[in-house]
Each structure stands twice: as structure tokens, then as C-alpha cells.
Amino acid sequence: MRRLIRLVLLAALAVWAWRYAVGVRRPAERATVAFPDGSAIVLERGSPGFERLAAEARSALGR
């Protein structure tokens, strides 16, 4: 039983450390689009339109 608890704790610690490391290294990817009426929308990875905007940004960034 103690072995099992130790294993679960180790797994949880490993998952937390991995997520922490990845979260710190990778900046948030998002796109903001603003309109003349003052409104704006923020798109995050996975939302409709984001990938099309990201593709345009990548084409501008890739030299």
C-alpha cells in the first residue's frame, strides 16, 4: 500500500513538473483583432480563425 501511495505521489509530481516547465517555456499564443467601433476579439489556439491568422504570421516571420 505504501509503495502504491509513493508511486502515485511520484507520478503526480512528475506531471506537475512537466506542466510547469512547458508552461513557463512556451509563451501564450493568441491573436487579437480590433475593429473601428472599438470592439476587439481575442482568439486562442483552437478557436476558429486562429490557425488562419497564425499561418499568416508564420509566413511573415519565416525568412
Binding site: R26, P27, A28, A31, T32, V33, A34, S39, L43, L53
Partner: peptide, 20 residues
């Protein structure tokens, strides 16, 4: 592309922040 997300008007500003 930003303008297509809003039915009535064109986009005046786009900020795209990626890992690269």
C-alpha cells in the same frame, strides 16, 4: 482574415503572438 471574423466591418488592428 480578421475582418472576416466580424460581419459588419473591417479589422483595423491585428496582433498575432506565437511561440516563434
Amino acid at each position: 482574415v480578421g475582418g472576416e471574423l466580424h460581419a459588419s466591418t473591417e479589422a483595423v488592428r491585428v496582433e498575432i503572438e506565437l511561440a516563434e
